[in-house]
């Protein structure tokens, strides 16, 4: 018997695959970005279906609320309404790329089917663990004890990235003087 969580998974999986395909296919980059937003939101609720509600919230804030807004804003500033060359040229090259992707997908699916399809479904979590506070506390404990070095390294990386992005955006010209 399908539970409502299973039903939720199928709906969200359909939405995310449909709009994920739209990201790749849409000729107007703005539509790509908007489809990406919908994919991000459905991925966030897939995290929720896996009882990771804190990550779902973070996914909404970071991806849907910040990263994709950045993409949309940059595209709007570029004003690329009429994109002529959407896809790469060359029938042979494109065919090879598509076949390679299909083979990769087939290999992945067959591997998952042969390895994990016989596994039992998720065990229901005990009631104490389903409370998101407990799960979030576990996450924080793991993040600040086992992975503290990686956490600090990521912090340093973010600082470098921030400085780099600001520097890049303040560059006025290339290696040579501008004509004007």
């Amino acid at each position: 018997m399908l539970t409502s969580t299973d039903f939720l998974f199928y709906v969200l999986a359909f939405i995310s695959v449909f709009f994920g395909a739209a990201v790749v296919i849409a000729r107007n980059p703005i539509y790509s970005a908007m489809s990406l937003v919908i994919t991000m939101i459905s991925v966030a609720f897939l995290f929720g279906a896996l009882d990771a509600w804190f990550l779902a919230g973070v996914q909404l804030i970071v991806y849907a609320g910040a990263v994709t807004v950045l993409f949309v804003m940059v595209l709007m500033l570029f004003d690329l309404k009429h994109e002529m060359k959407t896809f790469s040229k060359g029938l042979l090259g494109n065919g090879v790329k598509l076949i390679a992707s299909g083979v990769t997908l087939g290999m992945l699916l067959v591997y998952i089917w042969s390895t994990y399809a016989t596994e039992p479904t998720f065990k229901p979590l005990p009631p104490a663990a389903t409370s998101s506070i407990k799960a979030t506390k576990d996450l924080a404990t793991s993040l600040f004890t086992d992975y503290i070095f990686a956490f600090e390294a990521i912090g340093a990386l973010l600082l470098i990235i921030a400085v780099g992005a600001v520097t890049l955006s303040r560059i006025t010209g290339g290696t040579h003087h501008a004509d004007s």
Binding site: S16, V17, V23, V24, T39, E83, T86, F87, K97, S101
Partner: peptide, 14 residues
């Protein structure tokens, strides 16, 4: 989803 993204990276120009 991963393969969809892969196709996009290989085939899009923008």
């Amino acid at each position: 989803l991963f393969v969809l993204g892969m196709i996009g990276v290989m085939m899009r120009r923008n």
